[in-house]
């Protein structure tokens, strides 16, 4: 079983070479976002939408 408290995770590699990750995570809370070196992790915990550049 997948643990129910877990939201899905989006892991983005090489975030240092692209601004895409920052754009994706702008609308999320601090608890939904983690950066480990060049790897970015976003956690889906609510129906709050990500805000991409095309929707701004």
């Amino acid at each position: 079983m997948v643990k129910i408290a877990h939201g899905g995770l989006l892991i983005v590699d090489d975030i240092d070479v692209s601004e895409g990750f920052d754009q994706l995570s702008d609308s999320l809370t601090r608890k939904q976002r983690l950066v480990v070196g060049r790897v970015g992790i976003l956690k889906k915990r609510s129906r709050r939408p990500l805000v991409g550049p095309s929707t701004r």
Binding site: L9, D14, G20, Q23, S46
Partner: peptide
Amino acid sequence: DLALHDSDHSSEAVSEEGLALWSRLRMGV
């Protein structure tokens, strides 16, 4: 449940593909 993005690292691709993956990610509580 888990999506890994390591393809095209352009901002456009990360945003578009990231949004597409996010839309199908499982909701947490």
